[in-house]
C-alpha cells in the first residue's frame, strides 16, 4: 500500500464533538495524507469516533497535557519514517484548507518549521479570543520577534508544519511539554532551524473540552518568561539530550 511521506498529527482531549469533523476536513482537503490522532486520556468517547473513521489513534494511558500528546505524535512520525508532520488541533480551530500551504513551504525547502498565523490572513476573519490570552499573545509575539530578529505574529498558533530535521529535534527531551509555543520558536531558531509564518484561517474555540482550557494565565506568563530567559542563556546549538 502506497504511503504518504507526510503525517497529520491531531492531539485531542475530550473532543468527541469536533474530532470527526476535523478528520473529515483533512480528508476532503488532502485525501492522500496519513492521519494520526493522539488521544490524551479522553473520557468522552473521542477515541471511538476516531476509530470509526478508520484513523490511526495513539492513546496515552492517562491525561498528560497538550505538549506530551503532541510530542507523542512527533515520535510516532519519526519511528514510522515520515518526512513531514502537519500538526493541528482536534477542536476544529484550524482550517484544514490551509494544509497544502504548509506542505508547499516544507517540500519547497523554504523552511524547516512553518507556523500558521491567524493574524497574517489577508482578507479574512478577525480572531478575538479571551482578553488575557490576547494580551499574552501580543506580549510574547513581540518578545519572540525581538529575540529571533524575525517577525512572529502568532506564537501560540498550534497549527504547525515540520520537516524531519525539526521533528528529530523536537522529539528529544529539549521539548518543553508544559505550554510549548514561544519558547519552542526561540529554541528552534537558536538551534539553527529556519522558521516561517504563513497566513491561515483560524476559528474561535468551538468546544469546551479543548486542550488549552483552564490555562492559568499567570502561570503561563511566568513559565514562558522563565523558559525564554533560560533559552537565551543556553549556548546556541546546544547539545540535544
Amino acid at each position: 500500500m502506497g504511503r504518504s511521506d507526510c503525517l497529520v498529527v491531531i492531539p485531542v482531549y475530550n473532543e468527541a464533538e469536533n474530532v470527526g469533523k476535523v478528520i473529515d476536513g483533512v480528508r476532503e482537503c488532502m485525501p492522500g495524507l496519513d492521519i494520526v490522532v493522539v488521544d490524551d486520556g479522553s473520557v468522552d468517547g473521542s477515541v471511538g469516533i476516531v476509530k470509526d473513521k478508520g484513523v490511526k489513534v495513539i492513546c496515552l494511558p492517562f491525561h498528560m497535557g497538550y505538549g506530551t500528546a503532541v510530542q507523542t505524535g512527533y515520535k510516532y512520525a519519526l519511528r514510522s519514517g515520515y518526512n513531514y508532520v502537519l500538526q493541528m488541533d482536534g477542536d476544529g480551530q484550524h482550517e484544514p484548507k490551509n494544509l497544502p500551504d504548509f506542505l508547499r513551504e516544507l517540500k519547497g525547502d523554504r523552511a524547516d518549521v512553518v507556523i500558521g498565523s491567524r493574524f497574517l490572513e489577508p482578507r479574512g476573519r478577525k480572531y478575538h479570543g479571551p482578553l488575557l490570552r490576547r494580551i499574552g499573545r501580543v506580549l510574547f509575539a513581540a518578545v519572540t520577534s525581538f529575540l529571533i530578529r524575525q517577525r512572529v505574529t502568532d506564537p501560540t498558533s498550534g497549527y504547525i508544519g515540520l520537516n524531519r530535521k525539526a521533528l528529530e529535534y523536537l522529539s528529544k527531551d529539549v521539548y518543553p511539554v508544559d505550554y510549548p509555543d514561544a519558547d519552542v520558536i526561540v529554541m528552534l531558531h537558536r538551534a539553527g532551524f529556519r522558521i516561517k509564518e504563513i497566513p491561515v484561517t483560524m476559528y474561535e474555540n468551538r468546544s469546551r473540552g479543548t486542550l488549552h482550557r483552564g490555562m492559568r494565565p499567570l502561570y503561563y506568563i511566568f513559565k514562558m518568561s522563565l523558559s525564554l530567559f533560560v533559552t537565551m542563556l543556553r549556548r546556541r546549538g546546544e547539545p540535544c539530550l
Partner: peptide, 20 residues
C-alpha cells in the same frame, strides 16, 4: 516527571504498534 512522560509515550506508542 520527564521519565514518566517518556514512559507514558512509550507505552502509548508500543500499544499502537501492537494494535497495528
Amino acid at each position: 516527571s520527564e521519565k514518566v512522560k517518556n514512559l507514558t509515550q512509550e507505552v502509548a506508542l508500543l500499544r499502537a504498534e501492537r494494535e497495528e
